[in-house]
Amino acid sequence: MHGLMNRAVQDFLTVTYGEAAWRSIAAEAGVPERGFEALLTYDDALIGVVLRVASRRLRKRSSDLLEDMGTFLVSHPRMERVRRLLRFGGSDFDDFLQSLEDLPARAELALPTLDAIPRFVLRDDGRGRFLLTATYAIPGISHIMMGALRAIADDYGALVLIEAVEPAEGRPDDGESVRITLSLADFRAGRGFDLAGSGEGRGG
């Protein structure tokens, strides 16, 4: 898989738990000595190993770790670029959800070899209740989604309820889902989003 996600995991663990914690996790998981490069490609299985080692060493439940990572991905200043690229999807949270199905096509426009983006399917009951399903190479994507969606809803100033949906028995290929209930799209002022940006994104 494209190193973008590997690098994001590394950044998350380094920023949240410190350089020393990351080094010991990386060493045990067999991460290359210099860490992950966002533009190189790594074996799909490696990121799962890193997350398992991290969960054990940090004594955090895997689901909690992934949810924190989802939050980090879209809300940490270091990940400002990710937030901006996601916010291109729509002018409000509803609009943003609708744009998620286009995300892989967008990502492929930017970088044709990029395969680190989940495939999304959105079902909408028309009354502010959504079922968002993602298929991804890493198990636990629904937990990442929960953290990321809460943070991006916050970014838009929307009041939402996001719950995990138990996967259908014996049908793991159908992806992982979360249920989103949008109570108020403009609950309060969100963070600003200037379409053109400042021209100097941070980190990433």
């Binding site: 533009l39 190189l40 690229l85 291109f88 426009l109 379409l195």
Partner: peptide, 21 residues
């Protein structure tokens, strides 16, 4: 236009990452 802006921004991010690499 929106896609073009998205691309311009993604491209800048990738170029910066490539330069750092």
């Amino acid at each position: 236009a929106n896609e073009l802006l998205f691309l311009a921004e993604a491209n800048a991010a990738i170029a910066a990452e490539a330069a750092a690499l």
